[in-house]
Design a protein around this nucleic acid. Sequence first.
DNA 1: CTCACTGCTACGAATAATGTAGCAATGAGG
DNA 2: CCTCATTGCTACATTATTCGTAGCAGTGAG
Lengths: 128, 128
Amino acid sequence: MAIPIPGQPVRGSESGAPIMAVFDLLGRRWAMGIIWNLSRGPQTFRGLQNACETISPSILNSRIKELKQALIVDRSLEGYHLTPLGEELFTLLKPFGAWSINWAKTIVPKNPEKWDKCGDDIENQNSK
Amino acid sequence: MAIPIPGQPVRGSESGAPIMAVFDLLGRRWAMGIIWNLSRGPQTFRGLQNACETISPSILNSRIKELKQALIVDRSLEGYHLTPLGEELFTLLKPFGAWSINWAKTIVPKNPEKWDKCGDDIENQNSK
DNA sequence: CTCACTGCTACGAATAATGTAGCAATGAGG
DNA sequence: CCTCATTGCTACATTATTCGTAGCAGTGAG
């Protein structure tokens, strides 16, 4: 799938508003997870694959290509890593970690039937 | 599609880390765009459909159901709107608007072949 | 009763993702 | 050289998700 180009019509916006292009790009399966994982430092293809547990290599390959084209990810000898633009994006993504913990506490009691274990995972997540 | 429950295995994370559940939820097509649109105030189903231009009603319906289950969106007489949790989420999403403009300026010169018009849209986007 | 509109469902066609197998390249050990 | 293991990545059939369009029931105005 081609990356959305801001200024061009993308999914959800004929006007080409850049925010819609971003939502298109980040709204693809695994995209945000890949950025999150890369924030810890350079990763190999295999490393990312393991981090994303169930991603298939062909999709990982597509997402990486897209993020590279979008200048968010790049590759060096140490492996794939975030570009400066990607780092910036991650700083915006970071607060979602804390929000997600709060969200989990609110939502989980509303879905008791699906809720057994969890506690530890939630508490331990703020480790970066 | 069922919403991801933090603490339960979701796409990309057997551990059930809440952040992965959030990425799963927000990483679905249109999800972030819907939240973005609702930040301007209550919207009708049709209003959202028009705002998202090319979304199909069945998908819009699914996304709304999911976001409602996730306590991010609710419905009242005035229409669909963000819950307090949803408003919080939007404040995290908001900075992406500014970043996207910056990103657009960087990326567009790298894709000259796809770039004709754009300028005005980019400049005028920071209106909330 | 009609007309226009709304929220929403149905459903086939198109597109995207999964899961698995496997290939070429690289590097270590013998 | 010749294995063997590992890595980055491709291929491809199966399955899941989304698109695009038609249309139904409900509401309110005229």
